[in-house]
Design a protein around this nucleic acid. Structure first.
Lengths: 356, 356
DNA sequence: GCTTAGCACTCAAGGATATGGAGTGCTAAA
DNA sequence: TTTAGCACTCCATATCCTTGAGTGCTAAGC
């Protein structure tokens, strides 16, 4: 059977209505739409065809139709009309983002919150490093009796420090020597290059400061590992409860637990290859609990080899047009923000914070 | 009417049973308890008395009794038997904590997760600084053409750094001079002491490096502000949905939203004065949405002028004995962990991580 | 005087049964 | 090719009924 223009129009209407109401859509409801100049009987025939073609489903004989996964897919790929963000929306998104986002881990959480608010759905946000980091420079500072500060400059203009306390009495020149050795031996080497031989060599050349070396290298390795790691935040799960499909508490709980844990580890991988906005319609999800939950995701660029991702989780009948529009706008604004800082001439800085 | 021993025993039994079953407790159920050697009729009389005294309530005439807020209060304050943690429990808590908690903000989240897991309830965790921080030493490092690293040592052995990029060509000695000025003028001064006069003085003495000054002081102020701030995490809200009292989705949503936002800002204040473990029984809560939700909180010490707090949120009938026991044990273990690090002779370090 | 057995009464929960209405498919006429 | 009409299906909702857990009270027992 052929998918005529009219069939497409009917399908779009069904999906639109179902997105709005969460109720099966009957033929009469369609006829009441503006510029739908056919009688309910005609629509009924079309709907019967669409059902036969697998785009619609019928919960039971005397109910209206709801879109099938294939129906949603078609809708997302071809049928849905672009949602135009209103001035208000763009403005409120830009305003929200304007606040400086200092550290990536805080930023990730903040972005998730903003997206969750804007879409009224649970949101996921992540930032991960592409490519492996390495140290570009070591610096050691005496900070009092038996305490030293180690400063690492990493690739991509990141700076990390650590306070080291060891009962050692070292002179300025001892420290100078050690940093020189470190800078000569261990810079520009990614984590994978940290061989025992290399570390031994540093150890032997370190002189009086040798006992500092294991601490320093330990920390360096851990830092490089961390900087390859992904930062992730999930926010606003409770918004799910406002939707009719999650009145079933068990389901809501399953979904929430699932996006809390599992999705966390899977999604970045999914995002890996896709570029632009990606929509995963219900049953396309790998996780069983998410079989009737959809996910929309977008990537954005943070610069410095950092890759950002934002996404929302919602019912299969979520308003894809609106959600993708908002998400894209978010991603775009974020990318722009990171690309050209507001004050090009002024410090474009790394912030660093130490605790414990 | 007098609260006899037997009445207390009955009340305790009612609360215990209700905590376990979430169902109104009838007189017969009480008689079936071990060492309850009275008939149901006697218990009925006692229960009638307890109801008259305001410790029990009756959802409707022919239902069993449930504890009133006053009943819970009495139970928590006097009646409940100490819950002894099993070896397994203490072990699993200690194990969980053993993992090094590097940064306070990550730590806060981690602790919240652990507590939430241990109690199977949503958990809140927070760390806040008591007393105000100040800078103890400034250090400036040249990091290449027009880029410098600023290292701040704060009170309490915390170290913070920032990469500054400015199109300036400064010599090592320029930087030495500037750090000397900063160290002479701006150390040991809390945020409140940052007057314009003081900042002007630094500016005038800074020589060629003067244009670095505003950037440095801006950052210093912001850092001090941040270090006074509270770190907070809420985790595991979805666990609420497993409990019968939150099958009512609307209620669950209200509560979850409320602990997400409002409680966040209120609880630290509540915790301010209380020491030891604090129990807030349902209606004692200020927020309306939490009127039938209880909160249990404990403080612990992180050292360095840092104050930690962990708490859980649950139904009024939560198992106070178990929860308080676990919470206290957590708090104790955490305090201990921060008091004496596992390897007293080895580095006790500050870790620091910089982004964007 | 306290305790207990017995009894009548109450009321929510849950199952069974009716009823209304929304929606369908099909047929036949326009 | 479209549409009006009609018989049919089946869910949702309301209503009624039954069941059983639990109560309060009274009177007998220890």
């Amino acid at each position: 059977m052929e998918l005529t223009e009219r069939k497409k129009k009917v399908l779009r209407s069904v999906v639109d209505l179902y997105i709005r109401t969460a109720e099966p859509v009957g033929s009469k409801a369609i006829t009441e739409l503006p510029d739908m100049k056919y009688s309910s009987a005609t629509i009924r025939n079309e709907m019967a065809d669409l059902t036969a073609m697998g785009y619609l489903e019928q919960p039971h004989t005397s109910a209206g139709r709801i879109p099938s996964a294939a129906g949603y897919r078609l809708y997302v790929d071809e049928l849905m009309l672009d949602y135009r963000l209103s001035m208000d929306e763009t403005k409120s998104i830009t305003n929200a983002i304007e606040e400086k986002m200092q550290r990536v881990d805080k930023m990730v959480e903040k972005v998730a919150k903003l997206v969750s608010q804007a879409t009224n759905l649970p949101a996921i946000s992540a930032a991960s490093r592409s490519g492996s980091a390495c140290v570009q420079r070591f610096e050691l500072i005496q900070a009092g009796q038996g305490s030293f500060i180690l400063v690492l400059m990493l690739s991509g203009d990141r700076v990390v420090n650590k306070l080291i306390k060891l009962p050692l009495d070292l002179s300025e020149s001892d420290l100078k020597l050690l940093s020189a050795v470190l800078n000569a031996t261990m810079t520009e080497i990614p984590l994978e290059g940290f061989t025992t031989q290399l570390m031994d060599r540093v150890m032997r050349s370190a002189g009086t400061a040798a006992s500092l070396v294991p601490v320093i290298l330990d920390f360096t390795q851990e830092t490089l590992k961390n900087h390859a790691a992904t930062n992730m935040a999930v926010v606003g799960q409770s918004r799910l409860l406002g939707l009719p499909e999650y009145r079933d508490v068990d389901k809501a709980q399953r979904v929430m637990a699932s996006i809390d844990e599992e999705a966390l580890s899977n999604l970045p991988a999914v995002m890996q290859d896709a570029n632009g906005t990606k929509v995963i319609v219900g049953p396309e999800n790998v996780a069983d609990e998410l079989k009737d939950t959809s996910v929309v995701m977008t990537k954005f660029d943070i610069g410095d080899g950092l890759q950002g991702m934002i996404g929302v989780v919602g019912p299969t009948r979520m308003d894809y047009a609106k959600v993708t529009a908002r998400l894209s706008y978010f991603a775009e604004s974020l990318s722009k923000m990171f690309a050209k800082p507001e004050t090009p001439q002024l410090p474009q800085a790394e912030k660093d914070d130490a605790e414990q």
